[in-house]
Amino acid sequence: MMGFFERLREGLTKTRKGFVEKVELIFAGRKIDEETLGELEETLITSDVGPGAAAEIIAVIREEADKGKIKDTDDVKELLKKKMVSILGYSQPIVVYGDRPFVILAVGVNGVGKTTTIGKLASRFRSQGLSVLLAAADTFRAAAIEQLEIWAKRADAQFVKHQSGSDPAAVAFDAIVAAQHRGVDVVIVDTAGRLHTKSPLMEELKKVKRVIEKAMPDAPQEILLVVDATTGQNALRQAEMFDRAIGITGITLTKLNGTAKGGIIFAIKKGLNIPVRLIGVGEGIDDLRDFNPEEFVEALFS
C-alpha cells in the first residue's frame, strides 16, 4: 500500500505542485473576495475541470465564505478537497467476479492508450495469479495486432487474433469461446480507436458487444472507456457517446504523468456517474494504478 501511494504521488507530483502552489499563491495573505474566487475558478478551469463544474465548486466556497467559515488558505484547501472528493464518490476498482471468463471490452477514441493500458492490465491480472487472454479486435489500424501481441508476450498472456481487416466481432467471439474451452479467467478485448462521432464505427462497436453477449450472456462484465488525461472538455462528449452506444461501466484515465490535470473526470462522474477505475501514470508495465478518489484528491492537495 505504501509503495502504491508513493507511486501515485510521484505520478501526480507535477499536478499537485502546480495546483497547490497556485491555490496558495492566490490566497496568500488575502481575504476571500470576488477577485480571489475568480482566480481560483481559473485555476480549476486550467485543470480541465470545465467552466461548469468549476462554477459549482466556486459557488460552494463562496457560500461558506459568506457564512464566515473560511479564514485562511487551509480552510479553502480543506473545502476544495471535500467538495472534489464528494463529486468523485467512493473507490470502485475492477473486481473479477462470477463465471469465467470475466470479459473486459476496452474502447476509446484514437491514440488514448488503449493497447498499452490492456498490456499493463493483463500484466497486473497475471501477477494476481489469473490467466489472461488478449483478443486483437483492432483489425483496422496498421500493426495494431502486432502491437498487442508484443504486450501479450510481455505480460505472459494468451493471444487470439485474426487477419488484419477481418471482422472485430468475430475475433471477440473466438477469443471468448477459446477462453471458455481453456478455462481462462480474464479476456480483454482490444478494439480499434474510433471517434465517437462516427456512427458506422459506433455501430460496429455495438455489434462487437452483441456478439460477445452471444458467446457468453453475462459478458462483457466490464466495458472500459480509456480517456487521455490531456483531453479537454471533449472527453465528456466521448464518455456520453460511448455510454449511449454500448454502456460504459468504468473509465481508465491515462497519461497522468504529464502536466495535464485530468480535471474532466469530475464532469464525467457528475454527468454520467461512471467511476474512474484505473489511472495510467507512466509507460512501464507497472504504471497502472487503481483509482482512489481520496488519494487522488489528497495527492492534489497534500
Binding site: S47, D228, T230, T231, G232, A235, T259, A260
Partner: peptide, 12 residues
C-alpha cells in the same frame, strides 16, 4: 497535436 487537447495544450 491532437485537436481534442485541453488546457494543457499551451504547456505542451
Amino acid at each position: 497535436a491532437d485537436a481534442m487537447t485541453g488546457q494543457d495544450a499551451v504547456n505542451i
